[in-house]
């Protein structure tokens, strides 16, 4: 606490004498935490190491050295899992506290190396033959098992992405829009909806069956975005199927809105409101454009007026929602 505040508060008699002395002693001998610096270094180190080793195998695939590299990766991976297992807190279906950040990243490195290993086996020896599904399925399975066994949200997120990749879509924040060519194939949109449903079910399972209930948020988070984006893509791209995808979007939004209210998560409320806003805006402007023949440039004015009016409405809704959940104004 700032010394001026300490003085002011003790003059006002709010701070007791012991508290004042304790605070004054503290401000001269405060510990300096290197937590985030070291964590970032670890993260970058693991990123570089797994990326570099992955590249190294493929570059040396036809040389003599590659088996040595493979053995080294296998040994390193086994070492990571051995260490992780040794220092692991006892397994529980509830949240367990990780021993330290260093341990988190050892687990992560082990998983990433294992996946490089599998990928290499498939590329070189074709162990899964033509069953390409298996080559994506096995890593996913390993990731899910590790996520639950070691209680690791980072690995769970990787596993969820691998699950979507196994079904053929990509759902990480930066790739969900750029990598999925929803316009080319309707199948992808439907896959997105399916992934959303499955992940929602997984979230509900974790939450109600109390199997790692803190994983529910991660499942729900991916599910909400992939479902709503797929439904919106369906509405916008597949003109003829507006009557199919609009109810899907509305159903998803209602579900997640109620979920947000129930788990008191402002984040979910905001996201449903935003997706709803985009959907409604699309419907209004789509209708206006249909009326171009009769209204002509009036369409432009009406659209802008709609956007301004609806923005103000949005602001009011957000403020009201915030007031409703004030007590838990976090996630």
């Amino acid at each position: 606490m700032r010394s001026i505040f300490i003085r002011q508060l003790s003059d006002e008699g709010i701070l007791s004498e012991t508290e004042r002395l304790r605070l004054e002693a503290q401000s001269s001998s405060k510990l300096f935490s290197l937590h985030w610096e070291l964590k970032t270094m670890l993260y970058l180190g693991v990123l570089l190491l797994s990326g570099g080793l992955g590249t190294l195998i493929y570059k040396n695939i036809d040389t003599i050295g590659h088996q040595a590299i493979l053995a080294a990766i296998g040994a390193l991976c086994a070492g990571c899992f051995w260490y992780a297992n040794k220092h692991k807190p006892p397994f529980s279906w509830q949240k367990t506290e990780s021993p330290n950040p260093w341990w988190d990243y050892v687990v992560l490195l082990g998983c990433l190396l294992f996946i490089s290993f599998i990928g290499y086996l498939q590329a070189q020896y074709n162990v899964f033959g033509m069953r390409y599904g298996m080559a994506a399925f096995i890593p996913m399975l390993v990731l899910f098992i590790c996520a639950y066994y070691f209680d690791h949200i980072g690995i769970l997120s990787l596993a969820i992405t691998a699950f979507a990749a196994w079904l053929g879509i990509s759902i990480t924040p930066m790739h969900i829009l750029s990598d999925n060519y929803f316009g080319l194939e309707r199948r992808l949109i439907d896959t997105g909806l399916l992934v959303g449903l499955v992940l929602t079910a997984a979230g509900a399972f974790s939450e109600y069956k109390k199997k790692k209930p803190h994983f529910a948020f991660t499942y729900y988070n991916f599910a909400l975005h992939v479902f709503c984006i797929a439904a919106l893509a369906g509405m916008i791209i597949e003109d003829g199927l507006l009557l199919l995808y609009t109810p899907a979007l509305i159903a998803g939004l209602v579900f997640y809105y109620l979920l947000g209210v129930r788990i008191r998560s402002f984040y979910f409320l905001l996201m449903t409101v935003l997706y709803g806003y985009i959907g409604a805006g699309y419907l209004v402007i789509y209708t206006l454009i249909q009326a171009w023949d009769s209204l002509e440039t009036g369409v432009l004015y009406l659209s802008i007026i709609y956007l301004i009016g609806s923005s103000i409405l949005m602001a009011r809704i957000l403020i009201r929602l915030n007031r409703k959940l004030k007590a838990h104004a976090d996630l």
């Binding site: 990326g51 990928g119 498939q122 949200i153 690995i155 997120s157 990787l158 992405t161 990509s170 996630l331």
Partner: peptide, 19 residues
């Protein structure tokens, strides 16, 4: 914690998928 999970999935997903 959730954000860290997302960052890991975003940046390390490349190595996580075989081919």
């Amino acid at each position: 914690e959730q954000l860290e999970g997302l960052i890991i999935a975003e940046t390390m997903q490349q190595t996580a998928q075989p081919q």
